[in-house]
Amino acid sequence: MRKSLQATRSSVRRQDAFLAVGLAVLASVVAVSFGSGRRPDALGWALLLALHVPLAWRRRAPVTVLCVMIPLIAFYHQQEYDHSAPTAASMVLLYTVAVTGSTRRTVTIGCAVVALMLVLKAGHGMAGVAESFQITGWIVSMLVLGGYLRVHRQLTAAALDRAERAERTREEEARRRVAEERLRIARDLHDLLAHSITLIGVQTSVAAHVLAEDPDRLDRAAVAKALDDIADTCRSARGELRTTLEVLRDHGPPDGMDGPLDERGPLPGLDGLPDLAAAARAAGAEVDLSVAADVVPAAVGAAAYRIVQEALTNAVRHGGRADLTVRVGVHEREGALWVDVTDDGAGSGDGIPGFGLVGMRERVRSVGGTLDAGPLGERAGFAVSAVLPLRAGAR
């Protein structure tokens, strides 16, 4: 970065130096070919060439260059040398002052230069007055041109800056939406696969237990039921996984996301709670389900469904007892949907942290709700309680 900046500054100095040399050559040609005063002698040539030297620093220190060049130009004109020779250098300098400074500085310097020019032309009579008007027009033109270009550059830079900020904002928003989408996919897959795999594991254990209990008196009906339950769970998981994949294929995280994340594809809702209860019963748990709620927003219904699903999965996985009882209550009151799941299992896990509770908390936060989860305390069991505002979920 520093090397690039130094290279840019060096290039600017070279350009200004070449411009100074070119203007000095032009002034020399004008002084020799189109003289409107006496031709420069040794002093005149020295003044004419010397006043072009500061132009090599015109963009680095325009006011300093002006303070150096003005006395040289004034002295040159006082000696009655060719008046038009330094004109190009003077106009370039005035343009630089205007394009690099503020409006106030430009007006102040312009008035000072015009006043100095009028003083120098005061003794030339009417011819001096006419020439003064002509030179004043050139001075004003250069200052206006420089000021216009300065304002134009400022407006262009401001517009580019706004465009860059807007582009950065769009990129940040796109990254945020992609991150949210990835998190949503992770939650959905976790809820789906963890629930299905847990039920399959429990049902497989049941089948294995029946087979090993008494091979001579095999309960074929129990084994067939366990295998049928496994098949039903696999079909249900496959269907839900297919639905999730179809949603991802149709509305995956592309460059532009038009709608809210929770409105993509069909979402599970309260009508799916009986199926969850039936699957948990097939895994051997006694499930008491109570649902008392009208039509709720899709996002709130989906959050409630996933909370119950995860709670049932954890209860079946970590219950540790054959007569496990789980009570599920989903009720609408006080402008919110209350979800309560309690079990009387022996424990809530094996000490290995997972993503279930994390996913539940994220889902609850996504609809502006709150979640409490933990052991029941003195008596065995685990409880999950969530409050999901209906108005926040309907936004």
Rank of each mutant, 00 (worst) to 15 (best):
R9K: 08
R9E: 13
V12N: 09
Q15E: 06
A17G: 06
V29I: 14
V30D: 15
G37N: 05
A42W: 11
G44V: 04
A46Q: 11
V53S: 00
V53C: 07
L55R: 10
R58T: 08
R60K: 05
A61G: 08
I73T: 11
I73D: 05
T103A: 13
V107F: 12
T108D: 02
L116G: 15
M117W: 13
G125D: 05
A127T: 03
Q134C: 01
I139C: 09
I139G: 01
R150H: 10
H152R: 15
T156W: 10
R175F: 11
A179Q: 11
L183Y: 06
D188E: 08
D188C: 07
H195F: 15
I200C: 10
L211E: 04
P215C: 05
D216Y: 14
D219N: 14
A226E: 03
I230C: 11
T243E: 08
E246F: 07
V247N: 05
V247M: 01
P253M: 02
P260M: 06
A279M: 01
A282P: 10
L289H: 12
A299V: 06
A304F: 04
V308Y: 15
T313Q: 13
N314T: 09
N314D: 09
V316M: 10
V341F: 10
G356W: 01
G356P: 08
L357H: 13
R361E: 13
E362F: 04
R363S: 07
R363W: 01
A373M: 04
G377M: 06
R379D: 07
G381M: 10
F382P: 03
A383T: 14
S385L: 09
P389S: 02
A392L: 15
A392M: 12
A394F: 02
R395T: 10
